[in-house]
Amino acid sequence: MSGNLLEVQGLFAGYGEVPVLRDVHIAVGRGEIVALVGSNGAGKTTLLRALSRVLSGTGKLTFEGRDLSCLTPEQVFKLGIVQVPEGRQLFDQMTVLENLMMGAFARRDRKAIQETLASVYELFPKLYERRTQRAGSLSGGEQQMCAIGRALMAMPRLLMVDEMSLGLAPVIVDQLLEVLSTIRKQGVTVLLVEQDVFAALEVADRGYVMETGTVTQSGTAQALSEDPEVKRAYLGI
């Protein structure tokens, strides 16, 4: 086997009778940022759900050589596969600090949790300023920072970010993408799921394009963003 952190081979999954994913193959190497792009309804979020075992499916899913298919969502989380869910899903009534601490819910090492908290504050100084504010009162960009910070509090090995750019100004998206590059340098692998194809490919090393439930193209980020097919499909040129 190669040194891939995550491998998905021949994954089929769906909701009830409705099949969504058809024979999906992807691989994510250690320390990579991999973009998973595609339009609405391509099955990107479904793939994430299948990876975090909220949704069952058939096919081979391995994380560091470990088979995921027989694990519960909590066990997958403990292995270090952590999601930043679409729409941020913060605990609105709780403070920023409480939200961050919820990310460390499954951890018991108090001292190390404080260290992680310090590094999250270093990454997002805004969150430190606003630590006693209710998360629901933050701006959209700050909320997304809080959601990423919360996921980082769980010390992920693989961070899966779902639709990070949703409803955010392009300037903020660029800032957040930069943060993802920093996180990667700290040893966290990132799987970035995006509709904003070109923003995602800007920071990613490699990318997969999904259409109607299957991967139609893959390659280095640069090759994909220069690919005439991708350009035509997503930019209309």
């Binding site: 403990k78 605990f91 009534q93 819910f105």
Partner: peptide, 23 residues
Amino acid sequence: SRFGFGLIAIRENEDAAASMGID
């Protein structure tokens, strides 16, 4: 307790609680 924080998390946002590894 942790148990209580888990319950409050479920009250505040159950989907988020689940994605934070709470059973």
